[in-house]
Amino acid sequence: MSTSETITGKRLMRLRVNGEPHEVAGHVTHSLLEVLREEMALTGTKHGCELGECGTCTVLVDGEPVYSCLMLAVEAEGREITTVEGLALQGRPHPLQRAFSDLGAAQCGYCIPGILLAAKALLDKQPNPARADIEEALSGNLCRCTGYTKIIEAVEQAVREVQVQEGTRA
């Protein structure tokens, strides 16, 4: 067991969240979801089942969407974690946030943080996704309010907005 690491109880975790380093005392049994919400007060990340069955708690780890309810916080150490609070750039909403707000894609809003992050991961990889790509990328996130219609339209609008911005810059 020489090179094995054994972790019990609480320990000081070094987590990099939304570009900032944080030190928090977290229990080894705590999911990333619990540490974000309960130790770091980042309550923008929601939860709907804690079993990986609804998508509500989606965050990005090294840019990839994962369910924060199924990842131990200790496994997130040393990795880049992005939550909804980290989407805005210098106080300006991300184009996805703006489009979701403008089109009324957030009704009750509870699933929206997770969906925004799933959508961001898609756009980071695929700047010009087809509708089917968007549907596929968001198929791990349930929404009970919108029928996904305005959500998909908002992703499409954000795509256009980013293209216009980049066109202007170019």
Binding site: R37, A41, L42, T43, G44, T45, K46, H47, T83, V84, E85, L87, A88, P93, L96, Q97, R98, F100, S101, D102, L103, G104, A106, G109, Y110, I112, P113, L116
Partner: peptide, 21 residues
């Protein structure tokens, strides 16, 4: 026109019951 609660909901800033401590 957009709803008044859209920006907060899309920022993760809306405080639902379980967010309260």
């Amino acid at each position: 026109l957009p709803r008044i609660d859209g920006p907060a909901k899309c920022a993760g800033d809306t405080r639902y019951a379980d967010d309260m401590v």
